[in-house]
């Protein structure tokens, strides 16, 4: 009787081990190839997101929703900047320098979004454009009033850039501190995002402070005109 129990235990342990190993691509191929029905094989490789033969490893589970939130933030900000550029492109504003600045930021955010999409999908992640995961990496879709004057727009942009930098930093924190770490994604952020964002935050804070100083005159119209001309040449 005792030996029977021991046998049963060993058998069940083996079964358990086998079940665990089924999470490996190779095993699934073996079982698919052995199966008589053709659909078992095709079912595996027709791009179902449940496929075991995927590219997911390291900390992708915990970082995926954060990157998704961050992609949505970049897209939201991209359109916000586009409208800010539009505002300064009206004949009443007529500030081509400011327009150029914000159009540049808009294009950058859009291109960065595509870059991030490529990155997260290369790691076996997916992108959900509809659900907005609440995270420090996400931004509100409520758009602030963009019909603002020149100095305010710089302040708005500076805040935006800081928000985006904070978002990337948050994703990086998750990549380096979650239970399962993800050095690959952390490195990607360090290389492709954080330095660029530090630069643009710095640039905008410089602009905001310069313009604020130049505007400390009774009639700042000439200061703004000259500053806009300066921005055009950047």
């Amino acid at each position: 009787m005792k030996s029977f129990i021991a046998f049963a235990l060993v058998a069940s342990l083996c079964a358990l081990a086998q079940a665990n190993e089924e999470g490996v691509c190779r095993n699934s191929v073996v079982s698919a190839c052995g199966s008589s029905s053709f659909s078992a094989l095709t079912g595996f490789f027709t791009g179902e997101s449940t496929s075991i033969c995927n590219a997911r490893f390291a900390g992708i589970e915990s970082i995926e929703p954060e990157v998704q939130a961050y992609i949505n933030s970049q897209l939201t900000k991209s359109y916000e900047y586009l409208l800010l550029a539009t505002h300064f492109n009206s004949y009443q504003k007529n500030r081509p320098g400011f327009q150029k600045l914000y159009q540049g930021l808009s294009d950058r955010s859009f291109d960065d979004s595509i870059d991030l999409i490529k990155k997260i999908t290369s790691r076996g992640g997916i992108v959900d454009f509809n659900t907005r995961h609440e995270s420090p990496a996400s931004v509100s879709t409520q758009r602030p009033t963009l019909e603002v004057d020149e100095l305010h727009s710089l302040a708005l942009a500076l805040d935006n850039e800081k928000q985006l930098a904070t978002g990337a930093t948050h994703v990086h924190t998750r990549a380096t501190h979650a239970a399962l770490r993800d050095p690959e994604l952390a490195h990607y952020l360090e290389e492709s995002f954080l330095p660029k964002q530090a630069d643009s935050v710095r640039k905008l804070s410089g602009y905001a402070n310069d313009l604020a100083k130049l505007m400390k005159v009774p009639d700042p119209s000439l200061s703004i005109y000259l500053f806009d001309e300066f921005l055009q040449k950047q």
Binding site: A55, S113, K118, T121, V127
Partner: peptide, 17 residues
């Protein structure tokens, strides 16, 4: 543009490839 982005994101997936 958004719809095309979603399409791009789908076909860039590892299991779709």
């Amino acid at each position: 543009s958004y719809q095309y982005l979603a399409m791009g994101a789908y076909f860039a997936r590892d299991t779709v490839n």
